[in-house]
Design a protein around this nucleic acid. Structure first.
Lengths: 340, 340
DNA sequence: CTGAAAGCGCTAACAT
DNA sequence: ATGTTAGCGCTTTCAG
């Protein structure tokens, strides 16, 4: 293998040039308190002059930390990595980390083998913490990491009683707002297209829908709800079924933007005008509204804030090492397009 | 910071359990030759029993290598990270590396500040080599890395006399094949929409177009060529201009699939039937053909092979540390859709 | 073929 | 406030 850094200066040479001990240089590098200002400047000058960069392996070995955290994608369909949602999360996390000297590693953890490899990687001490995106229901990874006592923050909780730190959007509130908005605009026959109900996020959004109806004094029946799987195709099927059962539908709440897009197609194909005859609101999971339809009002998730909050929680865990988990639930925002 | 691995076994404990010296365990871990088979098995048993995982920081420090390579995106438009082309490269590289114990790090290097940070990262000894995707013309990064004597492999060369290892598709040959195919099918008025001609890849594809015409004994004139910038919009503009100058056009070669898509729109809007009246072939840069048009014949690049070849070259450089650069140019494939 | 010993370059505890 | 020293856990000669 190529030997790195042959001929690059060592900490010791910096110390010699600055006329101080090795310990002092180390303190300057690590921004430790209790270094006289003049000394610090002298050391910094020496560092610049020699173009010194501390060897990370040596730091990690001595300090027992990696100065790196992993942002792991557990999404099996790698294509979805490219969706704006993930891109924006990556950017937000990357930016939030830019101020620190912590390196961000993007990692794919899709299969069982990759899960094992990832755990080994962590056990080798190469990362100090993990951010997990796009978790599917029964993914064992969070618990494996908890077993390593490795600080972990999830994007979205897996259940109501999640025992790992997480950041989530207010799915119940967002759905409630969306449906409340439809009712306030005078819609009276509001159907719902849910996500797969074995996923917590889908159940939350359904609950928001039901709560909004109840608050308005309306009852919802199972015949007004159709289950999808977040895909556009499932949105079409769900919409077709709903129309068959209730031709009088005048509004639809969909648990994802892709399903909303599918619903829109079916509605238009059936001769309905959107939004005049039927208004549609979808959760903007993949930020695809721009690609789908300008008529589609969406429940927008605060993606950048989510990324920032994840980093904040992780840094806290890295600092305190308390082992306690905490969570952040961020409000969503209703983004009106034209008239809904 | 959280202290990793407190309570995890050390190499020494493995040695004790196996009844051998530390050096022997190290040899087993590193698959070094010259260890008796029975000894090796004893050590492996001890490793399994203790659940031993070598500490990477210690290995890196002692061996002076990181066991990690970076796959750097220099694309400013982060959105494009999601395009199938990049996704597939990432997957191919990831898979090619799966057999080794080298970790793949995905990194964004967009701004000047990020370039500096990345170079520091490399100088800190955190990576053994770099794979660079999506290089823009005058990006200084390759030369900065060469200055560090850090093994580097580019995806696509920047000039004809590239002095860094690279893997590229046969752009000249692909374009020649595409245009040759159009001529063979009896097309007589073949126009070209090129990419920005300050990019080497665009010039190669133009050269392929010209060579095919020359071989067929036809002359091409500047009025048959329009320059775009790989975007769909530029494809529309280019096609409109070509139609104005040469309404008799019966075939178009576009240097990217996105520009081809733009051209198709304009052609159809002008009343032409595709491919009956005008055949269109585009270089499938972003593998978007599926999203654009089933009528579009494409010049497909061997994405998976490109990723594999990049890893192969990098591993060779890591092994030999010879400093010599080498390159691989892979053939493209004409993918016919319907009749062109 | 294997064990012992000398580092790899840095941090942190302990002196001063 | 700063110098000194003892590791961090592994690889890699060098003997045997």
């Amino acid at each position: 293998m190529a030997k790195q850094r042959s001929g690059t200066p060592r900490l010791e040479e910096v110390a010699a040039l600055a006329g101080v001990g090795r310990g002092t240089v180390s303190r300057v590098i690590n921004n430790a308190v209790g270094v006289k200002d003049s000394t610090r400047r002298a050391v910094e000058r020496a560092i610049t002059e020699l173009g010194y960069v501390p060897n990370q392996a040596a730091r990690s070995l001595a300090a027992r930390r990696a100065d790196a955290v992993a942002l792991a994608m557990t999404e099996t369909d790698w294509r979805r990595f490219g969706e704006p949602f993930f891109s924006e999360i990556v950017c937000a996390v990357s930016d939030a980390l830019a101020g620190t000297d912590i390196q961000l590693l993007l990692t794919l953890v899709r299969t069982d083998a990759e899960r094992r490899r990832f755990v080994e990687y962590a056990r080798a001490g190469r990362i100090d913490g993990v951010l997990l995106m796009s978790l599917h229901g029964g993914d064992p990874l969070p618990d494996m990491l908890a077993g390593l006592r490795l600080p972990t923050v999830l994007l979205g909780r897996r259940r109501g009683d999640e025992r790992v730190s997480y950041v989530d959007a207010d799915n119940v509130g967002g759905a409630r707002d969306a449906v409340g908005h439809l009712l306030a605009r005078g819609r009276t026959a509001v159907a719902a297209i849910t996500g797969p109900l074995d996923m917590y996020v889908a159940r939350c959004r359904l609950r928001g829908y039901e709560e909004a109806l109840r608050r308005a004094g309306r009852r919802s029946g199972p015949s007004w709800v159709a289950e999808g799987d977040f895909s556009e195709e499932s949105g079409r099927r769900a919409m077709a079924g709903l129309l068959r059962r209730h031709p009088e539908i005048d509004a639809v709440f969909a648990a994802s933007d892709t399903m909303a897009a599918g619903a829109l197609h079916v509605l238009r194909a059936s001769g309905r005008r959107v939004p005049e005859d039927v208004a549609v609101i979808g959760f903007d999971d993949f930020l695809l509204a721009q690609h789908t339809d300008p008529q589609l009002t969406t429940v927008r998730q605060p993606v950048t804030e989510i990324g920032r909050a994840m980093v904040r929680l992780l840094l806290e865990e890295l600092g305190h090492a308390s082992g306690a988990w905490r969570h952040v639930v961020l409000p969503t925002e209703l983004v009106l397009r034209d008239s809904a």
